[in-house]
Amino acid sequence: MYGMTAKGYTAMKLRNSVYYFKEAATGIWRNRLMSLASVIVVVLTLLILGSFTLINLNIQAITEEIKGQVEIVAYLEDGADSVDALSRLRAELVELKGVQRVTFVSKEEALERLRERLGNQAGITDGLERNPLPASFEIRPQDPEQAAVLSDKVARLAGVDSVDYGQQIVEQLFAFSRGIQVFGYIVIAFLGIVSLFLIANTIKLTVYSRRSQINIMKFVGATDWFIRWPFILEGIFLGLLGALITYLLLFFGYGFLYFRASAWMYQNFLSVKMVVPEVAGRELLRFLFFMGAGIGAVGSGISVRRFLKV
């Protein structure tokens, strides 16, 4: 009576999945109002989760960009720029652990850069009798978060007058981005749990309407997983549908915001780059589908539990 061969076994599993999908579809259709309510619940929670993901994504991108710009500038003592002294110092810098790249900026180059930055007011440097700017080494650290440690080491080298890496801004930024990430995970976990129970409660009603069927399945000897699968599929489907709707809303919402914000920043000479909608959308889609399916599956798993205890 039971297929014992591997082939028969596979065929049986296939037949089961047909049954599971049919039952799940029946469940959704028969309780269409409740199903609709579940989808709305998913959309509402995923909207919040998704918006948060987008914000987080942008903060991360900005942090990464700023991290990439972190540079330690070692100003040299005046008169320490003989060829010998320079090559010795350069060698010492390159030897230091965690240094990615070292660039020398001569006094002349420093002055040239200043003139460039001053633009049409560059003329004011013409009055200078001698170049007041020190020569420097620009050091790019391998790990921007280690800039503080590295700059301490650089400062101790002979010939280095002072060191600057914009420490306050960098430190604050790192603390901020770490804080945002932790906060983000907490919010996602919290909202995830809330929506899980909302979904569990709505699906519980569709389970409840089929409790006599479940009861019969239990006493004729159906396995718990056989009973559970249609409900789980139902939950996954509702979760994915909610995720899709949320995705469309957020994707177009974000696109609109992106172009508005970019235009505004351009007008106001700000150079903060938001994550482009295509990239953000890809991240968002992955996140929403994962959350939607997960919430749906676990939520319905929770609701069936009680009815399986017979």
């Binding site: 009576m1 039971y2 297929g3 049986m12 037949r15 089961n16 049954y19 019969i216 399945m217 004729v220 000897g221 159906a222 056989f226 009973i227």
Partner: peptide, 13 residues
């Protein structure tokens, strides 16, 4: 038939 379906019996059976 339902009693046999849910214990994954062969449809011919």
């Amino acid at each position: 038939a339902f009693a046999l379906e849910v214990i994954e019996a062969n449809p011919k059976e």
